[in-house]
Simulated scan of single mutants.
Amino acid sequence: MAEIQLKNLSKRWGSFVGVDDFNLTIADKEFLVLLGPSGCGKTTTMRMIAGLEDATEGDILVDGTRVNDLEPKDRDVAMVFQSYALYPNMNVYENIRFPLKVRGVDPSTHDEKVRRASAMVELDEFLHRKPAELSGGQRQRVALARAIVREPNMFLMDEPLSNLDAKLRVSTRAQIKNLSHELAVTTIYVTHDQIEAMTLADRVVVMKQGVVQQVGSPTEIYDRPANAFVASFIGNPAMNLMDGAVEGGTFKAEGVEVKGLTAPDAKTTLGFRAEDAEVVESGGQINAPIYTMELLGEATMVSVRIGGSLVSVKADKNYRADIGDIVSIKVPMEHCHLFDAETGERVGG
C-alpha cells in the first residue's frame, strides 16, 4: 500500500522557483500523470518524491509517514528513466536481476522473480542479449522489468517513451497501461505528451512554471479546462482559442459572432474543439477563407485564420474545397468555452 501526500511542497534554487506550493494526495494504486511543457516542474516534483532532490519547503508523506529525510534507497520506489540506464556489460537477465542483488534479496528467489518480470514485458527470448543488441523499445522494456522485479511500493516513470518512435510509443504505452492494471501499484508518471496523459492516467496534474493549473480525470480536464493554458495544452489538435469581446451576451471577433452566451461584457477568449464544430454551407457563426486543409484519413481538418489565431474544424473525410474558399463554421453553444482575456481563467460554468 502507498498513499502519497504532498503538502506545501516547493523547490527553489536561489530566486528561481522550480515547484511552488504543490499540494496533492495520491491514492493507493492510483496512476497519476504529471503533465506540462519542459521546465514546468514535473520532473523536479518526481525527483523530490524519489529523494533525488531535497525539498526547499513542505512535506512528503507515504502512508502517513514523513519521508523527506529518508535516503532514496529507503523510500521503496522504483524509477524508470527516459534514458533506460542499463548496464552495457550485463545481459538482459543480469540487468533485470541487478536490483535484487543490490538489495540482498534471497538468491534462491532471483530466477523466479526475473523470469516473471521478463514475461510481463515479453522479453523471455532476449534474456541472453546485451543492451547494445536490442532496439529502443526492447531496452525500455528491460528498464520496466528491472523496476517490476523490485516489487516496490510505488513506480516513478520519467518520460519513459520519449526516445521511442511513434509506432513503438503506442505499443509500449499499451504495455504500461496493462502492467499498471496487473501490478496495481501506485504510479507517478511524468510526460509532456498529452496523449500519454489522456490514455494512461486515472488523474492528471497539469503544471506550468512550477504551479499546478488543474487536477482531474482526463475527461474532466478535456471537457472543462480550468484556464486557457490547460485548454491549449490538452487535445489533438489543441482547443481553438480566439481573442475577442463579449457584448450583450454575444462574442464578437473578426469574422466571428456567437450569440446567446451568459457572460459579462469584457474582453474574452472563446474556445472550442475541432471535433465539436462543423463546416456548413451557410449560417455558421464563423465565416472566413480556408487557410489550409489536411486529410487525416478518418476526417479532413479545415483551418481558417481568425485575427492572429489558426482555427481548425474537423469535416467529413470526403470534404473537398480549395484554399481561399470562404467557409462557414457552426459551433454549438454548449461546446463553447469562455476564458478571461487577462487572467486566462475560465468564465462561467
Rank of each mutant, 00 (worst) to 15 (best):
V170C: 00
V62K: 06
P264G: 11
K7C: 06
A238G: 13
A132S: 06
E294G: 03
E53Y: 02
G308Q: 11
E122M: 01
R97W: 08
G283Q: 06
F81T: 09
Y93R: 10
E220P: 07
I234K: 02
T109P: 00
D158Y: 02
A201K: 02
D276T: 14
T300F: 00
P99H: 05
K42Q: 11
L70I: 01
W13F: 15
T219D: 15
P218E: 14
T186M: 02
A245F: 11
K167E: 07
V311N: 08
M1R: 12
A184P: 04
L9F: 08
A2Y: 01
P332N: 07
G104E: 04
I148H: 08
N178T: 15
E94V: 12
E247S: 00
E298D: 15
P225T: 08
G248R: 05
C40L: 04
P72F: 06
K113Q: 14
M207V: 13
T65D: 12
E345M: 08
M48L: 09
R97Q: 15
D106Q: 00
D316H: 13
A321F: 10
N178E: 15
H335A: 11
T65N: 11
M242G: 06
S108Q: 07
V121G: 03
L144T: 04
A55L: 00
E151M: 08
N236G: 08
R150M: 14
H337I: 10
Y87M: 05
L24T: 12
Y87V: 11
T300I: 02
I96K: 04
F155M: 04
T268N: 04
L338F: 08
C336K: 03
I26A: 01
L164E: 12
K177I: 14
T172Q: 06
R139W: 09
D340F: 01
G249H: 09
Q285W: 03
N23K: 03
G39Y: 10
G51N: 10
V280Y: 03
L261Q: 05
A147H: 07
D223I: 01
T250V: 15
G104M: 03
K252S: 11
R141C: 07
Q140C: 03
D20R: 12
V185I: 15
G244F: 03
W13M: 11
Y222A: 10
T45C: 06
L261D: 14
L310F: 11
K208Q: 15
L156D: 03
L86N: 07
D106T: 04
M154D: 07
K113N: 12
L161V: 05
V77N: 04
I148L: 04
M90C: 06
V230G: 01
T343S: 13
K29P: 12
G137T: 14
V313T: 13
F31G: 05
A245Q: 14
N91L: 07
A253E: 07
K177D: 15
L100R: 01
Q209K: 14
T172R: 02
E94N: 14
T343I: 10
Y319S: 04
C336D: 01
I195D: 08
G216R: 08
I286V: 12
L295W: 13
M154W: 05
V212D: 08
A231H: 07
A27G: 12
V121F: 05
E281H: 01
G348W: 08
R320S: 13
